[in-house]
Design a protein around this nucleic acid. Sequence first.
DNA 1: CAATAATTTGACCGTTTGGTAAACATTACA
DNA 2: TGTAATGTTTACCAAACGGTCAAATTATTG
Lengths: 229, 229
Amino acid sequence: MAIPRAAKTQRRTRIQEAKEEQILEAALDVFSRHGFRGATIDEIAEVAGMSKPNLLYYFRTKEAMHRALIERVLDTWLDPLREFDDKGNPASEIRSYIRRKLEMARDFPRESRLFANEVLRGAPLIEDELKGPLKQLVDEKAEVIRAWAKAGKIAGCDPYHLIFSIWSTTQHYADFDVQVRAVLGQEKDGQGRFEDAARYLEQLFLGGLGLEGDRRAEVPAMKEQPGGL
Amino acid sequence: MAIPRAAKTQRRTRIQEAKEEQILEAALDVFSRHGFRGATIDEIAEVAGMSKPNLLYYFRTKEAMHRALIERVLDTWLDPLREFDDKGNPASEIRSYIRRKLEMARDFPRESRLFANEVLRGAPLIEDELKGPLKQLVDEKAEVIRAWAKAGKIAGCDPYHLIFSIWSTTQHYADFDVQVRAVLGQEKDGQGRFEDAARYLEQLFLGGLGLEGDRRAEVPAMKEQPGGL
DNA sequence: CAATAATTTGACCGTTTGGTAAACATTACA
DNA sequence: TGTAATGTTTACCAAACGGTCAAATTATTG
């Protein structure tokens, strides 16, 4: 008998754990390049190095795979915003938020593109997630920013659009990577563009919020590339 | 005899013109939502309200359709940057560049998403365009910005990343529209978010470039939504 | 009004797609 | 070691896919 995904015994075997990981890794590769409809199970199976039915033993449908991927990524993706702290001082909080987002764009570009692809097609799978938990989280952080503005710690600005602009500018380096590289040319083909981007974006956002004075706040430089997710 | 696309007579008939328009309009709809691989000829034909063979009479392959679309959009898409003028004063040039890009995101979101989809999958069709004409145009405008900085008219900054950040922040309102709406909630469901975005982005960029004083420069407000492309 | 060219369609074709059935192989563990 | 549960593979299916063809229809024009 072969009932997929932890049938009789509730406990997941090592082999399940490993194979599912292997599949999701391959799926991330394919989905992030071609979107849901453009991706094929065959290609994912090939990248994962296993037969199609074998893959379908672990994830019964293409949608199940996609859903599993998206859920996992969405969670990780919002971590930097969750860390955004109302106790800290505005300049360093914003600086380190930008840095963390930029590090993610550098280290997990496929995750970013997966998300972008999903939103581009109308986000049918995560609509509820966006309108619920995401909106709630952003509302909360927007309130923090508004409080800073009210206290005169930063220039008054629309906190929602501030958050949008940090999202867009940082994720741009993952989602539009090929364009960025094409425009910068081969000289900047290493990871140097991320350092440049970090410097520029800090200047932009701190200046835009009237915080130039706090330029050299106690925020560390971008980390070297770490390991997996 | 039925040789497609202006055979004996060189002149394109009215009917050709109209049908090709009708097809590209439908194709834009489908490609912008699902990307090249995710789009199907059947769906495009259905949206265009004609039979599949009829559609294929005007565009022999799916790729031909996509190519025609991309070429047309890419050209329009760069117009605002071409208008970016070194003669004007920095504050108003940057302000009106932002406004134009934001107007495009508002009025032509599908075009923006088409482009985003293409870049996301690695831009195989427009790689040359990006590395050639686009890079050249950006290089040229970057030089203008650098000159402004050297002359002390704006704060020194990396002009390439400045351009990237204007692209990303403005296009975000087209490409991530569903997310933006989800976060802002129903109250801001009208076009008001574009006005808010315009105000915020001007503050951000002018502030970030040390140009707050020039805030009320001679740049008109965002235009009402105009007609077709 | 012919007749010729342009357009449209239904039927079709080979391939790819998402997914299944069942046989076979391997692992876990009593 | 035996056996039940888990994992893998080969062969396959129906639907959807990109695209073709020849026949039918509609415009254009001498």
